[in-house]
C-alpha cells in the first residue's frame, strides 16, 4: 500500500559518487558454459559474411562500387529507410504509448496485430499492400479516382512497404521501454500541472529515449534490408524503386560477383551508420 520500504534510506544514498571511480568487486572468470555458445553464435552470424569477403572480386571493386547505378540504389535505400523510420516513429511511438499506458477493449488483440508483419512473409505483405493501396485496391482506387494518386512503382511505395515490415520492431521496442519506465515521474509531472500530452512529450519521451533509439535503429536496419514487400508492392525500377536489396537480387541472376559487391557495400554502409549512432547514444546517456 505505501510505497516506501524501511531500508530505502540505506539503499539509495543520494551522495554523488564520482563516475568511473566506483570500486566494484572484481568479476570472477567468465564461465566457459556461456563463452562457448556465445563464440559459436558470433561465428554463425559472421561466417557467411566472411564467405562473401573471400569471394568478392577485389580487383574490380573500385569500379563496381562507384557505378552510378549502384550509387543510385544505395542512395534510394538510405533515403527511403530513413523516411520509413521517421514515419514509423510518428505512428509507432503513439501506438506504443497507447498499448503500454491505456486500457481499451481489444488492446491485446491490437498488440497481436502489431506483430503480424513480423510473422507473415514480406511478399505476402506486399501483395496485401497492393490489394489495399494498389491502383485497383480497396483504398487505392479512391486515391487514384479522387487525387490521381497511384502509389505502386513510386518511391512512396518503397517507404510504405518498409514501414509495414519495420514498424513492429519500433513499436515493440518502445512499448517495452514504456513499460519499464518509472511511472512515478509521470505522476510527479502531473502534480506540477502537466496534462497527459505534456507529461508524454516532456517527461515520458525523454525517459524512454534510449528505447526509442534502439527501436529506431532496428526499424531502420529492417527497412534497409527490406526486399519482398518492396519488390511486390513498389516494383523494381532503377533509380525509382530499386533499392539495394533488389539490386542485389537482380545482380544475383546474372552476375553473382556483382551481387557480392552490392551486398558488401550495403553491409558496410549500414555498419558505419549503426556504429556512429550507437557511439552517439552511448556517449549521450
Amino acid at each position: 500500500m505505501t510505497a516506501q520500504t524501511p531500508d530505502r534510506s540505506r539503499r539509495r544514498p543520494r551522495t554523488p559518487v564520482p563516475r568511473g571511480r566506483v570500486r566494484r568487486p572484481r568479476a570472477g572468470r567468465v564461465p566457459w558454459i556461456l563463452v562457448v555458445p556465445a563464440v559459436a553464435g558470433v561465428l554463425f552470424l559472421v561466417l557467411p559474411f566472411a564467405g562473401m569477403l573471400v569471394r568478392a572480386p577485389w580487383p574490380t571493386m573500385g569500379a563496381r562500387v562507384t557505378d552510378p547505378a549502384v550509387l543510385a540504389a544505395l542512395w534510394l535505400s538510405l533515403s527511403t529507410a530513413t523516411v520509413a523510420t521517421v514515419v514509423s516513429l510518428l505512428l509507432g511511438v503513439p501506438l506504443a504509448w497507447l498499448l503500454a499506458r491505456t486500457e481499451f477493449p481489444g488492446r491485446r488483440f491490437v498488440r497481436a496485430l502489431v506483430t503480424v508483419p513480423l510473422v507473415i512473409p514480406p511478399v505476402v505483405g506486399g501483395v496485401a499492400l497492393l490489394l489495399v493501396l494498389g491502383r485497383n485496391g480497396l483504398v487505392g482506387q479512391y486515391l487514384d479516382a479522387w487525387f490521381g494518386l497511384t502509389l505502386p512503382f513510386t518511391p512512396a511505395a518503397v517507404v510504405i512497404a518498409q514501414v509495414f515490415v519495420a514498424m513492429p520492431f519500433l513499436v515493440i521496442s518502445v512499448e517495452g521501454a514504456l513499460r519499464g519506465a518509472d511511472r512515478r515521474y509521470e505522476e510527479a509531472a502531473a502534480t506540477l500541472g502537466a496534462d497527459r500530452v505534456t507529461v508524454f512529450t516532456r517527461v515520458t519521451l525523454p525517459m524512454v529515449l534510449p528505447g526509442i533509439g534502439a527501436g529506431a535503429v532496428l526499424c531502420w536496419a529492417r527497412a534497409l534490408g527490406e526486399f519482398g514487400a518492396t519488390i511486390t508492392f513498389a516494383g523494381n525500377f532503377p533509380g525509382t524503386t530499386q533499392t539495394m536489396p533488389l539490386a542485389v537480387y537482380m545482380a544475383m541472376q546474372r552476375d553473382p560477383e556483382a551481387a557480392i559487391v552490392l551486398s558488401l557495400v550495403l553491409l558496410l554502409v549500414s555498419l558505419v551508420v549503426l556504429a556512429t549512432l550507437r557511439e552517439r547514444w552511448v556517449n549521450a546517456s
Binding site: R8, R184, Y185, A189, P206, M207
Partner: peptide, 26 residues
C-alpha cells in the same frame, strides 16, 4: 494536474534530463 498542490516525492523524482533550474521551471 488541476489541483492546487505541490508534491515532494520520496526519491524526489527530479527529471534526470533537465537541469535543476528547468526542473523547478517545469
Amino acid at each position: 494536474e488541476h489541483r492546487p498542490i505541490g508534491m515532494v516525492f520520496q526519491d524526489y523524482l527530479l527529471f534526470e534530463h533537465l537541469s535543476a533550474l528547468d526542473n523547478v521551471a517545469f
